[in-house]
Nucleic acid binder design. Structure first.
Length: 557
RNA sequence: UGGGGGAUCGUUCAAUGGUAGGACACAUGGUUUUGGUCCAUGGAAUCGGGGUUCGACUCCCUGUCCCCCAGCCA
C-alpha cells in the first residue's frame, strides 16, 4: 500500500455512498474529541489519523475539540500536550482548537427544551438509589418517584441546580425515555450532575456539568460534523445519540464506530498509563518506554512511522491486537531513509594499531547515509588508538563469527583493514586491550587485490572520542498481554525490571557533540538513536530508539 | 441472563456469488565497505454442522466462541 493509493475501509465506503447520494451537500466534516484528562497515546494516534486523514482525502475539515465536560479530571497541562502531539503528528485544524465548554449555554438551553417537551426531569434520588433502580442486564429498572413532576417544577428545579442551590449529588437531570429498555443506556440516562468544581476554562460559572451522552451529539451537531467516528464501546450509545438529536430536531451527524488500536507487550488505557506515572514505574508521561505520543517522540519515533503504522493496521469493527513488530518495522523503514549513520561504541575495547604512526590524526571520509546520497559526507578522525565494541572481538572465534579474532583481518569502516596480532589481559584473564597492524594500502577500507575481509566494524578514535550516556530500552512488559493476569495480580506484576539499562561509558564519534533533538541517527551496526532532552554538551545522552534487525544475534539463540 | 457488535494464514488487513491475496513475523538463498538496506523463494487461514447454487469467506438455518453495556467517567 503506497501513500497515493490508500486502502479503502468500511468508513470510507459509507462516506463514498453518502457522497454519491448527495448527503450533507457533499460536505465531509470530522472531529477528534479528546478529553484533556491525560496524555495522548498511540491509540489516539489512530483516531487522529482516521479523522484528519478523512478530512484531507475528501477535501473536508476536521476539528480538534476538547471534550471538557468533567472539571474534576481535566487540566490545561493536558490540553497543551494534546495540541503539541496532534501538531507533531503532522495535522492541523483550520478553526480552533474548539472546546465543548464553549457550548455549555447552548446545552443548557437544549436541556430546557427537552424538559418542555416532557422528555426530561429532575430526579432527587441518590446515586445509590439510581443505581439500584436501574435494573440489571436481565431485569428492567423501575421508574423514579420524581419522574412525573410538572414541566414548570422541572424547569424551576433545574434552574436552581444551575444557580447552585443544591450540593453535589443532591439532584440530577435525567432524560425520560424507558426504564425497561433492553438497552441500559436508554433507562433514563443522566444528562446533568451537580459538580461544585472549578473548570479549566469556564472557572466557576457553572456548577452543573453535562454528561457525555447528552453533550457529545450536541457538540457534533453544533459544529456540523457529518461523520462522528468513535470506538466500538459507544455502539450501544448510538441509539441515545440519535434519540437526543431527534428530540431536539437539530442537525444530525452520523456516528460510526471502529475497533480501537491494541498493541501487544503494552497497555493502552489512560487509567493504567496514569498509574505507571503516579507510582513511578516510569519517569513520566514522556518516559521513552511509554506508548504515549510524547514518550514515543522522546524515544525517537518519527511521526511518519506512526502514521504509516496506523495505516497498516486498517480500520475495522473487529477487535484485535496488533504486533509491536509491525510498529518496529514501520519505524525502521522510515529511519533507514532518514538516519545519519554515525559510529558509536557501547562497550569499548581498546585497540592499538602498532604500525600506525604516533601523534598522527587522519580525517577519513564517511558517507552519511547510503540510502540518501543528498545526505552527503563527513570527516571522522582516525588515529593509532581506537575503540571497537567488545562483542566484535573473540580470542578464538568460531568459523561463522565474521568479526575480529586473533590472527584475523577485518575492515574498519571507511578506514583500513586491520589484523589482530596480540592480546593484552589483566590479572583476571580479561582482555583489556588488543594490538593490531593495519594495511596502509587499504585506505578507505578497500583493496583491489581480491582480498576478502569477512567483517566490517565501526570504531571511534580514543583521543577524539566523546564520552556518552546511552539509555537502552526494552519492552516495559514481559508478557504479550500485560492485562491478562491471574486473580490477585495486576498488570504491574508484569513489568519488565530490565526495561531500562543505562550505559554511561559509551564512546561516540566527536561529531555527535552537535547532536540535536529531533535528529535521527543510526549508530552503525547497532540501531537507531536520538539525543534525549537531558542531552548537554557536558553529558551527551542518547536514547536507543530501536535496534537494527539482527540476523546474527538471532542465530546465536 | 437482556441488548449491541464480532469471528479469514502465528498477527493484521483484503477478496462484496467466480483462481482465498498483501503486509508483518518466521524460514531459506542472493547482493552488500552496516550480520543493516535491497532482491528472490518457501511454509502458513475461511469457527463447527447443515442447506441454497454449476460454483459459497460471501446467501439461508443452526450451534460455538470472543468483545462491549448495569459511573452523577468519557
Amino acid at each position: 500500500m503506497t501513500d497515493e493509493q490508500k486502502q479503502t475501509n468500511f468508513i470510507r465506503e459509507i462516506i463514498d455512498e453518502d457522497l454519491k447520494n448527495g448527503k450533507n451537500d457533499g460536505r465531509i466534516h470530522t472531529r477528534f474529541p479528546p478529553e484533556p484528562n491525560g496524555y495522548l497515546h498511540i491509540g489516539h494516534a489512530k483516531s487522529i489519523c482516521i479523522n484528519f486523514g478523512l478530512a484531507q482525502d475528501y477535501n473536508g475539515k476536521c476539528n480538534l475539540r476538547f471534550d471538557d465536560t468533567n472539571p474534576v479530571k481535566e487540566e490545561d497541562e493536558f490540553v497543551n500536550s494534546i495540541i503539541e502531539d496532534v501538531d507533531w503528528l503532522g495535522f492541523d485544524w483550520k478553526n480552533g482548537p474548539l472546546y465543548a465548554s464553549d457550548y455549555f449555554d447552548q446545552m443548557f438551553d437544549y436541556a430546557i427544551k427537552l424538559i418542555k417537551l416532557g422528555k426530561a426531569y429532575v430526579d432527587d434520588q441518590s446515586g445509590n438509589q439510581i443505581r439500584e433502580t436501574r435494573g440489571t442486564l436481565s431485569e428492567p429498572g423501575v421508574n423514579s418517584p420524581f419522574r412525573n413532576r410538572t414541566t414548570q417544577e422541572n424547569i424551576d428545579l433545574f434552574q436552581q441546580m444551575k444557580n447552585g442551590d443544591f450540593g453535589n449529588g443532591e439532584k440530577v437531570l435525567r432524560a425520560k425515555i424507558d426504564m425497561s429498555s433492553p438497552n441500559i443506556n436508554l433507562r433514563d440516562p443522566i444528562l446533568y450532575r451537580i459538580l461544585h468544581a472549578t473548570h479549566h476554562r469556564t472557572g466557576n460559572k457553572w456548577c452543573i456539568y453535562p454528561m457525555y451522552d447528552w453533550a457529545h451529539g450536541i457538540e457534533d451537531s453544533i459544529e456540523g460534523i457529518t461523520h462522528s467516528i468513535c470506538t466500538l464501546e459507544f455502539e450501544a450509545h448510538r441509539p441515545l445519540y440519535d434519540w437526543f438529536l431527534e428530540q431536539l430536531e437539530v442537525f444530525h451527524p452520523q456516528q460510526i464506530e471502529f475497533a480501537r488500536l491494541n498493541i501487544n507487550y503494552t497497555v493502552m488505557s489512560k487509567r493504567k498509563l496514569k498509574l505507571l506515572v503516579d507510582e513511578n514505574h516510569v519517569s513520566g508521561w514522556d518516559d521513552p518506554r511509554m506508548p504515549t505520543l510524547s514518550g514515543l517522540r522522546r524515544r525517537g519515533y518519527t511521526p511518519e512511522s506512526i502514521r504509516n503504522f496506523v495505516d497498516k493496521t486498517g480500520v475495522v469493527k473487529r477487535n484485535g491486537v496488533s504486533d509491536i513488530a509491525l510498529l518496529d518495522h514501520s519505524l525502521r523503514e522510515d529511519l533507514n531513509k532518514k538516519a545519519i549513520r554515525v559510529m558509536a561504541i557501547l562497550n569499548p575495547l581498546k585497540v592499538v594499531i602498532t604500525n600506525y604512526p604516533e601523534n598522527t590524526t587522519e580525517e577519513v571520509d564517511c558517507v552519511n547515509n547510503p540510502e540518501d546520497e543528498s545526505a552527503g559526507k563527513r570527516k571522522v578522525p582516525f588515529s593509532r588508538e581506537i575503540y571497537i565494541d567488545k562483542s566484535d572481538f573473540m580470542e578464538d572465534p568460531p568459523k561463522k563469527f565474521f568479526r575480529l579474532g586473533l590472527g584475523r583481518e577485518v575492515r574498519l569502516k571507511h578506514a583500513y583493514y586491520v589484523t589482530c596480532e596480540n592480546i593484552i589481559k589483566n590479572e583476571n584473564d580479561e582482555i583489556i586491550e588488543i594490538h593490531c597492524t593495519y594495511d596502509p594500502k587499504s585506505k578507505g577500507g578497500w583493496s583491489n587485490d581480491g582480498r576478502k575481509v569477512k567483517g566490517t566494524l565501526q570504531w571511534v578514535s580514543v583521543q577524539h572520542a566523546l564520552n556518552a550516556e546511552v539509555r537502552l530500552y526494552d519492552s516495559l512488559f514481559l508478557n504479550e498481554s500485560p492485562e491478562k493476569v491471574e486473580d490477585g495480580k495486576s498488570f504491574l506484576d508484569n513489568i519488565n525490571s530490565d526495561s531500562l539499562v543505562i550505559n554511561n561509558n559509551c564512546k561516540v564519534e566527536p561529531s555527535l557533540i552537535n547532536a540535536k533533538i529531533g535528529e535521527y541517527y543510526q549508530f552503525m551496526r547497532i540501531g537507531y538513536f536520538c539525543a534525549d532532552k537531558d542531552f548537554t554538551s557536558n553529558n551527551p545522552v542518547f536514547n536507543k530508539t530501536v535496534g537494527l534487525r539482527d540476523s546474527w544475534g538471532k542465530k546465536q539463540k
